[in-house]
Simulated scan of single mutants.
Amino acid sequence: MLELPAYARSLGITVCGEEAGMPLLTVEFGPTVEGRPQHFHGGATAGLLETAGYAALHAALKASGRDPQLKPINITVQYLAAGKSRPSFAIGRITRLGRRNANVAVEAWQDDRARPIATAVMNILMV
């Protein structure tokens, strides 16, 4: 089972499944993630995306027998719609896994996966 970092656990992020070998993460709406009334805080949404991206990369690296230290190069978050007062989900997809660099695309949604509330692109250095 994937061990999430303390920050993710403090937000209430959990692993709720797996899809194509990648962990599917979720977070329930509540006071720890609320920004303006009845809406997710942008930082909580970004935290969910970042956690899902690293979880996907860890899963891919573990499957290939690798365990490097990960260092973020760049993380770009695109907010597409306000997260409302219901559960949010996120999953990462590895777009490139090289020897020293990895690129991960992540999306978060609520009711309809075809209508994401936010996406992210992560570039990560592996040392």
Rank of each mutant, 00 (worst) to 15 (best):
E50C: 06
R86H: 10
T14N: 13
G35A: 09
A114C: 05
A55D: 05
G17P: 01
A8Y: 08
C16T: 09
T32K: 14
E34Y: 02
A52D: 10
T45C: 14
V104M: 08
A52C: 08
I117F: 04
K71D: 11
E107Y: 12
Q78K: 14
L61E: 09
W109S: 07
T51V: 11
A81W: 06
P31E: 15
L24W: 11
G21P: 03
Q69C: 11
A114Q: 11
D111I: 06
R36L: 14
E50G: 04
D67W: 09
G98R: 06
I75H: 00
C16H: 01
I117Y: 06
I124Q: 03
M22E: 15
R115H: 13
M22P: 10
Y54T: 13
V121C: 11
G30M: 03
E28Q: 14
V27N: 09
I13M: 03
I94R: 04
A102H: 03
S85V: 08
T32I: 13
Q78V: 07
R86D: 11
Y7H: 14
R86W: 08
G30W: 00
P68R: 02
G17T: 01
P31T: 12
C16Q: 06
I91D: 10
G42A: 08
I73R: 15
V104N: 04
A63T: 02
P31K: 08
L80K: 11
G98F: 02
H39R: 15
A44E: 09
R36H: 14
P31H: 12
A102Y: 04
N101D: 15
Q110M: 06
Y54R: 10
V127C: 10
G83I: 07
V127N: 15
A90P: 02
I75V: 13
V33R: 01
H41Q: 12
I124M: 01
R99Q: 12
A6V: 12
A63P: 04
G30P: 00
A118I: 02
T119V: 06
A108E: 09
L24N: 09
G47C: 06
L24H: 04
L57G: 07
A114M: 05
Y54K: 09
F29Q: 01
H39I: 12
N123E: 12
F40S: 05
H58M: 06
L2E: 05
A59P: 02
A59N: 00
